[in-house]
């Protein structure tokens, strides 16, 4: 099982967090943890997502990147247990 930490920057729009969670589940990643906050000045949200899966993280990064309100996605940590 691979463990990953992602940092996602997104416009603070309706259901953006739900969209990220739906895509994460559907694409075969289990969520171990999540931290989310919004900068009220810029209206940009930062979501740190801890996920695990047998699948390559690029499969999830590419799918999250396709969501309309996402600004950027970074893989901060990648560990194979």
């Amino acid at each position: 099982m691979n463990h990953y930490q992602l940092t996602i920057k997104a416009d603070d729009k309706q259901v953006v967090l739900e969209r990220i969670l739906q895509v994460t589940r559907y694409r075969g990643f289990l969520i171990s943890g999540i931290e989310a906050k919004v900068n009220t000045g810029t209206n940009i949200g930062t979501i740190v997502l801890f996920v695990r899966s047998e699948r390559s993280i690029t499969l999830l990064v590419d799918q999250i990147n396709k969501l309309i309100d996402i600004k950027e996605v970074h893989v901060d940590k990648s560990e194979t247990a």
């Binding site: 259901v15 969209r19 559907y26």
Partner: peptide
Amino acid sequence: IFGLSLACTKHSFQ
């Protein structure tokens, strides 16, 4: 329907 649309649209608005 906004919630239901997440898995069956490219994007959705309310």
